[in-house]
Amino acid sequence: MVEMLPSVLSVSVVASLQPGQVLERTLQLPLGATLADAVRASALLAPELPLQQWPTCGIWGKVMAPAQPLRDGDRVELYRPLTVDPKVARRERFARQGARAAGLFARPKAPL
């Protein structure tokens, strides 16, 4: 039997442009489509935004170039820049909670 290859790719494009807001689009793209094609087709970014000003993009959690070809079932993700260094945020959270409430020094919870 001869297997028929699909003539289109089904991909999803996901973006969280603001905290607590997730936008997702499922697209049907022609074979040979790239990451940039998926982002443009999703209309999650302003169409006139030049490629150099796009947020970082990736596929399944790995940063990729806009020219990366897509495969069927890929999840294209748009990453917004970090506003706070994660190490600094952890230190601040630890300072707020205190040594007794976090990490190795936390008190065990009472059994129910």
Rank of each mutant, 00 (worst) to 15 (best):
M1A: 12
V2P: 15
E3T: 10
E3V: 12
P6K: 07
V8F: 11
L9F: 05
S10F: 13
S10R: 15
V14K: 07
A15W: 15
S16K: 05
P19F: 06
G20N: 08
V22M: 11
V22E: 14
R25C: 12
T26Q: 15
L27G: 01
L27M: 03
A33E: 11
A33W: 08
A36H: 09
A36R: 14
D37I: 00
D37H: 11
A38M: 11
A38H: 05
V39N: 07
L45T: 04
E48V: 02
L49N: 02
L51H: 00
Q52E: 15
T56D: 13
G58R: 02
I59W: 06
I59V: 15
W60L: 04
A67T: 14
L70I: 07
D74S: 01
D74H: 13
R75A: 00
E77S: 03
E77W: 00
R80W: 11
P81R: 03
L82D: 07
D85T: 02
P86K: 02
P86W: 03
K87S: 06
R90L: 04
R91T: 00
E92M: 11
F94D: 14
G98L: 10
G103K: 08
G103Y: 12
A106E: 15
K109S: 09
K109G: 07
K109W: 09
P111V: 03
